[in-house]
Amino acid sequence: MGEEISLDHRFQAYVDADNKVEPKDWMPEKYRKTMIRQISQHAHSEVVGMLPEANWITRAPSLRSKLILLAKVQDEGGHGLYLYSAAETLGISREELLDDLLAGRAKYSSIFNYPTLSWADMGAVGWLVDGAAIANQVMLCRTSYGPYARAMVRICKEESFHQRQGYEIMMHLAAGTPDQKAMAQDALNRWWWPSLMMFGPPDDQSPNTAQSMAWRIKRKTNDELRQEFVDKTVPQVEFLGLNVPDSHLKWNDAREHYDFGPIDWEEFFQIIAGNGPCNKERLAARQKAHDDGMWVREAALAHAKKRAAASASNALKTSAA
């Protein structure tokens, strides 16, 4: 018991000195579980997050935009993969992680339970959702767990063009026909508040924040990141000539930040509880892909085994000859 306390303290001191924790290091079981939960949630978010945007690939209004969107969604798949890879260093398999997701035990970012209803959503999602994600991700490049931090560095490199593409679409629409401008404003209206909710509940309602901050898993709090995001994004909305759907939004000279209106946390908690517009559809899509793909995965493994057996037996024959 005494030794356990000492290990916890040494671990904390190690992390306090900004060292990276690596897969072979001792770590408190709670740290390991927290890391698995956080990394896998992030991975699930990337993969589920492919769906709302993949929805519009076949309807992209130009060849160039089709290619760009397809590449973006593919990148997200790749990011999911880097993150599953990081999670697996903690002693959990991709299979278990997928099981948890499909059984509803694991979470993914609530934002992906909203529907993408117009082409302008491709703009809004890239600009706002990826924008919010980037804020979080840049912070995570300094997270204490080595494989996660390295995955985040890789992801951040690829992420910046996603946000720019989204904004480009918004600029194009905002400067287009009245229909296009209305489409852009409508998308902004629907995605603004959910994007703010992406940063999670307010600090005083976030049970895990304190420990996560202490272990340098999180480097900034939910409210800090949310405020940064609002401050950065409002000028971008104004540049588009659109309106932020928040009548309380106001620059506060004293604080040197934007004051913004109350968030409907009831909506957020309903989404978390599974009542969002697309929760069931998103999971059903992942479940179907998994189920439909079973025979394919089995076949590939069976074939690999046959080939391995064949070369082993060839090796035997050769050596016997």
């Binding site: 290990l7 040494r10 190690y14 897969p23 072979k24 290091d25 001792w26 390991r32 697996e88 260093t89 903690l90 002693g91 959990i92 398999s93």
Partner: peptide, 15 residues
């Protein structure tokens, strides 16, 4: 020593 596990696998956990 407390941070160095005794096994030779790249990951500490048994999966």
């Amino acid at each position: 020593p407390l941070f160095a596990p005794s096994d030779d696998k790249p990951y500490r956990h048994p999966t």
